[in-house]
Design a binder for these strands. Structure first.
Length: 268
DNA sequence: AAAGACACCTGGGAGC
DNA sequence: TGCTCCCAGGTGTCTT
């Protein structure tokens, strides 16, 4: 999936096309996603899309009568299409907006389309930590949270309660940039290095957004164009290849079931 | 209470 | 060619 930069890229790509448009229909071809597509979403037909927001990896499409909360899961994507384009096998939902539609494609169906009542939040959003690129992400609480756990640092920074939006790709990349071994207990990383990690997370995510996200097997941006960040990846997907800094072989291991790549020489 | 395992799905690639 | 197995961007929920 989509990690945070891909979701942000999707938001930016879709927003100018769908904002201020009136919802003319919601077509659900496959309701069985991670949770069933909320039936209440039908009540939004006739409403106008006021804003499009992102919280962590969720997209929120707001109307006066409530919001649509979309998650792309591992393999989801959204794009704007001309009305009438025939759906493919994995095109599960269309949000029709007159002449155009917002089409949701998701082969693995780990995503969701949920209803959020007006002026309310959703329980899924209530436990989330700070946004890495916003003001509420601060050095000291971040460092304190990491010093308080003995989990491997990589798993700790992928924990949504500590900071949202750091998925497997960018966790690998941020740790490389900060020169921290992914397997090191978070509690045993110096404050100086935690500061470097704080900066690295923000830099890596911001750069990926600038480049339109990382193109993976089945990710394309909302305009159908690929992201270019893959060209900038230093470790993810490069196990066994040379470290871009010291030229030694990158090591690939599994951590919490997730592929983890690092340079044993540069990262300690 | 924290942390690890499991679950949800499909498709693609490796290996036999 | 075709079968089986493993792996993939996430994350809530159940089990220790």
């Amino acid at each position: 999936m989509p990690e945070l930069p891909e979701v942000e890229t999707t938001k930016r790509g879709v927003q100018p096309h769908i904002q201020q448009q009136r919802i003319t229909a919601l077509v659900v071809r496959q309701a069985k996603l991670r949770w069933p597509v909320s039936p209440e979403l039908q009540s939004l037909v006739g409403e106008t899309i006021l804003t499009v927001r992102r919280r962590a990896k969720y997209l929120l499409i707001d109307t006066a009568k409530g919001s649509i909360m979309v998650h792309l899961g591992m393999s989801g994507s959204l794009r704007v299409i001309e009305q009438g384009e025939p759906p493919g096998f994995h095109d599960h939902v269309d949000l029709e907006l007159g002449k155009i539609a917002l089409r949701y494609t998701d082969p693995r169906r780990f995503g969701c389309w949920l209803f959020v009542a007006p002026n309310a939040s959703h329980e899924l959003l209530s436990k989330l930590g700070p946004e890495p690129l916003e003001e509420d992400f601060q050095r000291e609480p971040f460092a304190a949270a990491l010093r308080a756990t003995k989990r491997p640092i990589k798993q700790a920074i992928m924990d949504n309660k500590i900071v949202v939006g750091v998925g497997n790709i960018y966790a690998n990349e941020a740790l490389f940039m900060a020169k921290i071994s992914p397997v090191r207990a978070a509690s045993r990383v110096s404050v100086k290095r935690l500061n470097a990690l704080y900066d690295a997370i923000r830099i890596v995510l911001a750069e990926a957004i600038e480049q339109g996200g990382t193109t993976l097997k089945d990710f394309v941006g909302s305009d159908g164009q690929p992201g270019y960040f893959k060209q900038s990846l230093h470790v993810y997907g490069r196990g066994g290849l040379d470290c871009t800094v010291c030229k030694q072989a990158l090591k690939e291991i599994r951590l919490g079931g997730r592929s983890t790549v690092y340079c044993p020489n540069c990262q300690r």
